[in-house]
Deep mutational scan, measured.
Amino acid sequence: MDVFMKGLSKAKEGVVAAAEKTKQGVAEAAGKTKEGVLYVGSKTKEGVVHGVATVAEKTKEQVTNVGGAVVTGVTAVAQKTVEGAGSIAAATGFVKKDQLGKNEEGAPQEGILEDMPVDPDNEAYEMPSEEGYQDYEPEA
């Protein structure tokens, strides 16, 4: 019985440690998101679009440190934060509304985080759909 109880105690310690790591990862992701939003706020009209992409990228980098179902929630929060940063930029006159959601080359930025393969159960990952990809044929 002692062996059984000791095993359960060790398992509990492992769960607590994993929860603490997840909590730490979420806190880091939130900190990076805040950094990115402050970065966007300090940019001029020309830099705002690039700044919004930076927020998304920093958040995406930190999301990889967070495991399990938390990833889905962090990704949703990050996307809403990026959308909010863009709205703030438009409201303050840093950028025109028609410039939001495009990178410096004018290509749409939507789907940055949505296409990231995420499995809350950590069982399997699927690649994003290939609808947006084109076949590449090298020139002879």
Rank of each mutant, 00 (worst) to 15 (best):
V82I: 11
A107K: 09
T92M: 09
V55L: 09
A76Y: 12
S9C: 05
D135N: 14
A17G: 07
A29C: 15
V49H: 00
K60Q: 14
E13M: 00
A107E: 09
A56V: 14
E123Q: 05
G84P: 03
V15P: 00
E83Q: 06
V77G: 04
G36H: 15
V49I: 14
K60F: 05
E123T: 13
E28D: 09
E126K: 12
T64Q: 03
K97Q: 03
K96G: 02
T54Q: 12
T64H: 04
V82M: 04
Q134M: 05
D119P: 09
V15F: 04
G7E: 05
G14W: 04
L8S: 00
D98V: 09
E110A: 10
G41I: 06
A17S: 10
A90F: 09
K10P: 00
D98P: 11
D115I: 04
G41H: 02
E139K: 12
E61F: 06
E131G: 01
Y133M: 14
K21D: 01
K80M: 08
D115M: 09
K10N: 06
P138S: 01
Q99M: 12
T72N: 06
K80C: 06
E123V: 12
V55Q: 00
N103D: 12
A85Y: 13
A78R: 08
T72W: 04
E130C: 05
K12D: 00
T59D: 01
H50T: 11
A56R: 13
A78V: 07
K32Q: 07
A124Y: 09
T81E: 03
K96W: 15
T59P: 01
T81K: 05
K32A: 07
G14E: 05
A30P: 02
E131N: 12
A30E: 00
V26W: 11
T44Q: 01
G68A: 00
P108N: 13
G132Y: 14
V48G: 02
A85P: 05
E61R: 02
E35R: 07
L38P: 00
E126L: 07
E126V: 02
N65G: 06
E61L: 02
A124V: 12
A56P: 05
A69N: 11
K43M: 04
E137S: 11
Q79G: 09
G41M: 10
A140H: 07
Y133L: 13
A11P: 00
V66N: 03
S9Y: 03
E130N: 08
K60A: 07
K96L: 14
V71G: 03
A56S: 08
V66A: 07
E123P: 01
K80T: 06
G36L: 02
K32Y: 10
V40M: 12
K58E: 05
M5S: 04
T81Q: 04
E126Y: 14
D135S: 11
V74N: 04
Q79D: 05
A85M: 14
G31T: 11
Q99G: 08
T33S: 05
A30T: 11
V16C: 07
V37I: 04
A11E: 01
G84D: 13
T75E: 08
P108A: 11
N122Y: 11
E61A: 07
A124R: 12
D2H: 15
G36V: 12
P120W: 11
D121R: 12
A18C: 06
L100V: 12
T22Y: 03
K21Y: 12
V118N: 08
S42R: 09
G68S: 09
N65H: 08
G106Y: 13
V70G: 01
A19R: 03
I88F: 13
L113Y: 05
L100I: 09
N65I: 07
L8E: 00
T81L: 04
V63M: 02
E104L: 14
Q109W: 15
N122M: 05
A17E: 10
Q79K: 07
G41Y: 06
V66F: 13
K80Y: 05
E83P: 10
Q109R: 02
A78N: 05
Q62G: 01
G47W: 07
